[in-house]
Amino acid sequence: MVIIKIIKLSKDLVIGAWSLIKGLVITLKNCFIPAITLQYPAQKQPMTDRFRGLVDLHPEKCIICYQCVKICPVACLAIAHKQENNKKVISEFKYNMELCCFCGMCQQVCPTSAIYMNKIYEISVYDRDKTHINLLNPGKYIEWLNTSIK
C-alpha cells in the first residue's frame, strides 16, 4: 500500500514538474518576441478614421437646427443665435469638455456635418476654465496640438 502511494506521489511530482517546465518554456519564448508596447510620448499610435476625439465645428456649415444639443445625453453643448437680416446667425457655440462622454451622437445626428470629432486625444489641461471651449473660436485647439508632452 505504502509503495503504491509513494509511486503515485512521485508520478504526480514528475507530472507537476513537467507542467512547470512547460510554463517556463512559454515565458522564455515570449522573452524573444519584440515588445508590443509603445514608447509613448515619442511614439504614438495613429488614430483611426472613425476615432472620436474632441468635438469640433465648421461654423460656416452650421444651420442652427439644435439637433446636436437635443441629442447630447449629458448636455455638454450650448448654442445661442440671433436674427440678422432675417437670417439666423450663430452667436455662441459652447462645448463643455468636462461633461462630454465622447459618444459621437452629435456628429451622427448633424444634417450638414458641421459638428464633427477631431483626432485630439491628449486632452488634459491644468486649468478647469480651459475645459469650457468656445467652438466658434478658430484657434481653440492650437494649445492642445502644440503643448502635448514632448
Partner: peptide, 10 residues
C-alpha cells in the same frame, strides 16, 4: 473595434 466604431472602451 477602434477601426469599426472609433473608440477603444466605450
Amino acid at each position: 473595434f477602434d477601426q469599426i466604431c472609433g473608440n477603444r472602451l466605450t
